[in-house]
Design a protein around this nucleic acid. Structure first.
Length: 123
RNA sequence: ACUGCAAGCUAGACUAUCGUCCCGAUAACUAUCGGGAAGGAAAGUCCGGACAGCAUAGAGCAACGCGGCAGAUAAUUCCUGCUCCUGAGUAAUUGGGAAGCUAGUGCCACAGAAAAUAACCGCCACGCUUCGGCGAGGUAAGGGUGAAAAUGUGCGGUAAGAGCGCACGAAUGAAUAUGGCAACAUAUUGAUUGGGUAAACCUCGCGUGCUGCAAUACCAAAUAAGUAAACGCUUGAGGGCUGCUCGCCCAAGUUUAUGGGUAGGUAGCAAGAUCCUAACAGCGAUGUUAGGGCUAGAUAAAUGAUAGUCCUCGACAGAAUCCGGCUUAUCGGCUUGCAGUAUUU
RNA sequence: GCCGCGUUCGUCUAACGGUUAGGACACUAGGUUUUCAUCCUAGCAAUAGGGGUUCGAUUCCCCUACGUGGUA
């Protein structure tokens, strides 16, 4: 339970993603770009996350899968600390987009993700 | 042993911890247990099918594809084997293609007399002559151009020449015999010889109805109302109807713009032209029989991370309806057969 | 996923199967000018890659690579 990341904690509605991309606020820290949107929907988990990699920078499916897996792992291992940064009264939709030129190893990716979340939570 | 050619196989292994998706059971709303979880190309979408929807009285045209023979298959233009032509290679082997220019039309730049009913310079006899040639013919041996110039060489023949005749060849299609299921090959006979190009238009033969799982079916919601314009109401607008035409059927409203609105779920969807092993038939593609297995099924989309050990230190790369082929990418490793070179026996 | 279209100098483009692949802008050199700009002259520079048909391919055919559009 502590380190889990299953279907309920991921963005799974097509319309939610559309509104997130059109109305969400964007933050850029190092290789990671975040899209954050506060919603009024009442759900069990207060944070829903999605992961993405741009097709223009990574044309091969293997590369995109690799990026998304590493990002998921980095989020999963420090989920409690990241979730504590956001207001638990609202529910949040967050999209994590990796737009760096080269792949980072996992421990550096964790630090970068934490920095990005911290910046987004301040605003 | 080295270099190469062809065919095929493989695509790091194991342990521990945390985590993802699906199925089943127990719980009952998020847990536990058990089972399963990417490829040889999953890729490109170049072909062929399955499956689904729509269409289909019938006829013609158009469009597209293919074109040696036989086999194999659910099916094909792919595949397998063979025949012929041609390019590469010392060879094993391998790339390309194969109906019809004697149905018609077009094109063949530059050069050259002429690029297709051949005659510029030549050669030849005849007539005239002011002896320089001129006229009306015959001829295609010689000349140079070009990618290509009217079957090559020799002898005979002739005014000069010419397949005009002969000998030896070349090419084409025909008949007969032999071999082969056939394409075709070999031999003999007699015949003919006026270019190339159909991956030029085209002709002949054969094949193809169209669209594609974002197909399609069901549930829920919606496609509304209003306004404006055009055409029409049996003298037929429009639709069925698809590339077009004929033809057939239905027909009183139809089309466009504006306006405002939907896009969620379930099935399709994983037991099949199925996979593995063995035997048999066949040169092979492939087929038959026996035994065993159930082996991904998501919908923002699942296989990862960390630590350790070993080795040859790990390439290209990620399923989205499913199969058969082709093509392309690929670090290496292994097996079999064959060719060439060198050495030894 | 399925179905189409395209690729020519650094950029935008032209071409009947037949020249040394043409033009404009840009770049380089020279000239004109006291100098710069304008103008004039010359130069540089391309058929996406591979194979085939043909006497000869930018053009015709096949394969590959890349780009791009449609389809809810």
């Amino acid at each position: 339970m502590l380190y889990s990341l299953n279907k309920r904690e991921k963005l799974s509605n097509k319309q939610d993603i559309q509104t997130l991309f059109s109305k969400g606020k964007a933050f850029f820290v190092a290789p990671i770009q975040l899209l954050v949107l506060a919603t009024d929907k009442k759900e069990l988990n207060n944070i829903k996350v999605g992961f993405a990699a741009p097709k223009k920078k990574y044309p091969k499916a293997v590369q995109r899968n690799r990026i998304k897996r590493l990002c998921k792992e980095a989020y999963r291992l420090q989920k409690d600390e990241l979730q504590a940064l956001f207001n638990p009264k609202q529910s949040w939709h967050i999209m994590v987009i990796y737009s760096g030129k080269e792949l980072l190893p996992l421990n550096e990716l964790q630090k970068a993700l934490y920095k990005a979340f911290k910046k987004a939570s301040h605003v």
